[in-house]
């Protein structure tokens, strides 16, 4: 167990180092550099700016410098917003994204799991078809289509909800639905197929044969086992919510980190792109690690050693 955790940790660190190196290289070998504008700066000023951000030094020095700051949790300054560091930006913007993302994740779980179970319990009947219909639409509809449709009807046509920006609970509703669309559809399908599998297991027959109350069979023997695979989806779920936020926060003008990330792509604010990418990667790698470690605790049938061999 301990060995496994250490291995996984080391492995995650290695993955992170690769990500940092690759993104660092991408952002630093871009020709022209970040301070090349349409209007050329005077040579002396450009030199000064480059010296200020240590861009005049050889690449490997810059890299080592960046890494040593990174270890201390310092992601460096923003090129575009003078006086702001990447850390400042994350500290300011990320809570908004977390708020929106949490609502979306809860929405996806609380809508997806019950509808998947409902569909499985009524296989090939109306509820099943209804759930499968909507989950198919959810998978085929990009978040920006859901988002813009919601915005067009709910706020332009019917004036029910504010169309953009942030601040009140009403502002959360539409972006959260747009973000949750795809994951909800996935979770519903996942839960449905795993519930169908559980329902066909022998221990379900045993439970019925023993004469256990229907409610107990359903909850303790059925649903409890059926939602275990959903736990493995938590990693991809967070990743999906996170990348989805790039688009959804832009549509609804939510001042979150996703919107800022896209803005810095427009602005060619390379340190912010680099820093936020690394931040996201740390988050996701940590999330995946957590899911891998928690999974055997939830499902004792899976031993860590076995999973190690699968990898």
């Amino acid at each position: 167990m301990f060995n496994y955790i250490v291995r996984r940790l080391l492995y995650s660190l290695a993955a992170l180092l690769v990500v940092v190196t690759v993104t660092f290289l991408f952002m630093h070998i871009i020709p022209g550099g970040p301070f090349q504008r349409e209007k050329a700066l005077p040579e002396a000023i450009r030199k000064n700016i480059e010296a200020r951000y240590k861009l005049d030094q050889p690449l490997h020095i810059q890299y080592i410098d960046y890494l040593s700051h990174l270890i201390r949790g310092d992601l460096g300054p923003s090129y575009k917003y003078r006086g702001m560091t990447v850390n400042d930006i994350i500290r300011e913007r990320f809570p908004v994204s977390v708020e929106l993302g949490t609502v979306a994740i809860l929405l996806a779980l609380f809508l997806g799991i019950p509808s998947g179970i409902l569909a499985a319990l009524h296989q090939s009947k109306f509820p099943d078809y209804l759930v499968m219909f909507f989950s198919t639409i959810g998978i085929a509809m990009p978040s920006f289509v859901i988002g813009t449709l919601l915005m067009y009807f709910l706020s332009y046509k019917w004036g029910l909800l504010p169309s953009a920006t942030w601040g009140s609970p009403q502002h959360v509703i539409m972006p959260a639905i747009a973000l949750a669309g795809l994951p909800t559809a996935y979770i519903a399908r996942l839960t449905r197929s795993s519930m169908l599998e559980v329902l066909s297991q022998d221990y379900m027959k045993t439970a019925i044969a023993k004469g256990l109350p229907r409610r107990r069979i359903l909850w303790v023997h059925g649903i409890k086992n059926a939602i275990i695979p959903v736990v493995t989806y938590l990693g991809p779920l967070v990743a999906g919510i996170l990348t989805g936020s790039f688009v959804v926060e832009n549509i609804f003008a939510v001042p979150g980190l996703g919107k800022h990330y896209v803005t810095s792509i427009y602005n060619r604010d390379y340190t912010v792109i680099l820093g936020v990418t690394i931040f996201y990667c740390v988050l996701l790698i940590f999330m995946n690690l957590l899911v891998d470690l928690v999974y055997p605790l939830i499902d004792p049938r899976i031993k860590l050693a076995e999973r190690k061999e699968q990898v």
Binding site: Y11, A15, V19, F26, L284, I285, V311
Partner: peptide, 23 residues
């Protein structure tokens, strides 16, 4: 492959697009 997998494809693609569009 595992290392590439540990972060979502979309982030890789965004990084590469930022770079490739410049060059």
């Amino acid at each position: 492959v595992d290392i590439m997998y540990s972060i979502p494809f979309l982030l890789w693609v965004i990084m590469m697009m930022v770079y490739l569009r410049e060059i």
